[in-house]
Nucleic acid binder design. Structure first.
Length: 498
RNA sequence: GGCCCCAUGGUCAAGCGGCCUAAGACACCGCCCUUUCACGGCGGUAACCCGGGUUCGAAUCCCGGUGGGGUCACCA
């Protein structure tokens, strides 16, 4: 059995979006499952659209997702180079072969002229196809054009009859009538190959066994198969994975919110969650499993089980999965990923051991209550700042009477006396006070929560108290007591008659 | 428009001729747990695009329609 070799071949024109990420993931899963090689190749033959940052950005996203490659532009490999812009000599050599064998020919038609013809055809409602006028150009005429300094493009002599069949692992056999194809360009007049040509040459020379790519390439495949045949290279297997659509069924774009992997990272999603979600878009393990470890996905994955229809991506499910991982991943790991988010909000600076210990407690207290790291950072604010405002509704409910201040004073006294300041001791002391006062637990717990956090909801009160520590709690209780006193004093003044 | 692909709840999806009066998950709605909010647990609403065949029997096979998507460059 031939060794499985697959590739992900993005063009560095922008950031890696989730459609590309999923294509990369499926390739990677297949390679790992089959003990094959996963290759990264940059299709940077469009000199105009290449972006310097894009190449590094795509690799960074891939790395963040945990999709490592065995050969690629940064690490080399036996089939390099892996950047198409560095392989121009290879394409020229292969093109020359075709030309000499009479399987391709020079075309001197100007792009403007061709565009005009296309436009005309479109107006007439006819399919715009190159008419092959340069196919049988007389040598004399050719020399003349050459002498005039016209740089020709190279076109393939495509078959006019018969059909080309794509054997697709996901879709079965797809037939294209050759008469619907034309003599397409394989080398531009500037000596740079077109996508279809470079792709076939590289896939052949790099001995790619399975071409797994997005469905948008399905209609390119007959052209590529024609090139394979003319070049005399064996065909790889093909698998065209369905597209990912936006919620309105249109192609994903920036107006649909986050679509780039990088954006998901900065929005506080974990790579495990994104990978898991992407794997579930268009593929299913066949049973009820949803949350799966990467190893599990690898062992279960199969191309035959990839669905045929496009999937609409739903951020709600991704968010749910993210919350699952936030809860289930080892605490240290989550803390590690949360730290940059806390730093960005100015909660902490350089991380020393004490900070780390404190942050770990904070994360442990709130991670089950949030869905993303960004949300977590927002929810954690009062653990790092003591000048927070009090929730308005909460104030009306718990801070509107003089008695509320007395109640908090009693609570403050108890907390001041509690030693050690740990969960069982603090809780026992507070519960005892509740009993002494003959009130319900909530009657003391809610005002206290508002006093120390400014919020009416959140982790268990005693967890908050213990994380904050005694000194901080006492300070915050005093601040709340002052606040209530000022507030109620205002209320106590005689009402003004109109 | 030509060519190509696709079609199970709002979304992801199981199903590959009888086990389907159609799983599961997200979302949504109840209830329980609880000092609050989450987490968790339990339950509920909700789907085989339409029309013809084939078959004893069709969500599953075939044909047509409709709908959605992709693609038609010296872009990738």
């Amino acid at each position: 059995m031939k060794k499985v070799r697959v590739r992900f071949a993005p063009s560095p024109t922008g950031s890696l979006h989730i459609g590309g990420a999923r294509t990369a993931l499926f390739n990677w899963l297949f390679a790992r499952k089959k003990n094959g090689a996963f290759i990264l190749r940059l299709e940077d033959t469009d000199l105009e659209r290449n972006l310097q940052e894009a190449e590094e950005g795509i690799m960074a996203s891939l790395r963040w997702l945990g999709l490592d490659w065995d050969e690629g532009p940064d690490k080399g490999g036996p089939y390099g180079p892996y950047r198409q812009s560095e392989r121009l000599a290879v394409y020229r050599r292969e093109a020359e072969r075709l030309l000499r064998a009479g399987l391709a020919y020079h075309c001197y038609c100007s792009p403007e002229e061709l565009a005009r013809q296309r436009e005309e055809a479109r107006k007439k409602g006819v399919v715009p196809r190159y008419d092959g006028r340069c196919r049988e150009l007389e040598e004399e005429k050719r020399a003349q054009l050459e002498k005039a300094g016209i740089r020709p493009a190279l076109r393939i002599k495509a078959p006019r009859e018969g059909a080309t069949v794509v054997k697709d692992l996901i879709r079965g056999e797809v037939t294209f009538e050759n008469k619907t194809l034309d003599d397409f360009v394989i080398m531009k007049s500037n000596g740079v190959p077109t996508y279809n040509f470079a792709c076939v040459v590289d896939d052949s020379l790099m001995e790619i066994s399975h071409v797994i790519r997005a469905e948008e390439h399905l209609s390119n495949t007959p052209k590529q198969i024609i090139i394979y045949k003319l070049l005399g290279y064996p065909l790889p297997s093909f698998a065209h994975v369905p597209m990912i659509l936006a919620p309105d069924r249109s192609k994903l774009s920036k107006r649909h919110g986050a679509t780039a992997v990088e954006e998901f990272r900065t929005d506080g999603y974990l790579p495990e969650a994104l990978v898991n979600y992407l794997a579930l878009l268009g593929w299913s393990p066949g049973d009820e499993r949803e949350k799966m470890r990467l190893e599990e996905i690898i062992s279960l994955f199969s191309l035959e089980e990839v669905s045929k229809h496009a999937a609409i991506y739903d951020i709600k499910k991704l968010t749910w999965l993210n919350a699952q991982y936030l809860n289930d991943l080892p605490l240290e790991r989550v803390v590690n990923d949360a730290i940059p988010f806390f730093q960005a909000r100015g909660y902490i600076g350089e991380v020393d051991p004490q900070t780390c210990t404190y942050v770990t407690k904070v994360v442990a207290a709130i991670r089950s209550r949030v869905h993303t790291l960004a949300e977590m950072a927002e929810a954690a604010e009062y653990f790092f700042k003591d000048n927070f405002p009090y929730d308005e509704k909460g104030v009306r409910k718990y801070f509107s009477t003089v008695q509320a201040a007395d109640l908090l004073s009693r609570g403050r006294e108890i907390l001041a006396r509690t030693e050690p300041f740990d969960l069982p001791t603090v809780e026992a002391a507070y519960r005892q006070l509740i009993e002494e006062l003959g009130i319900s637990g909530g009657a003391l717990i809610h005002p206290t929560r508002l006093a120390v956090s400014g919020k009416t909801m959140g982790p268990g009160l005693f967890d908050i108290l213990v994380v904050l520590g005694k000194e901080e709690c006492l300070k915050r209780m005093e601040r709340a007591i002052d606040y209530i006193k000022k507030r109620t004093a205002g209320l106590a003044s005689p009402p003004v008659r109109p």
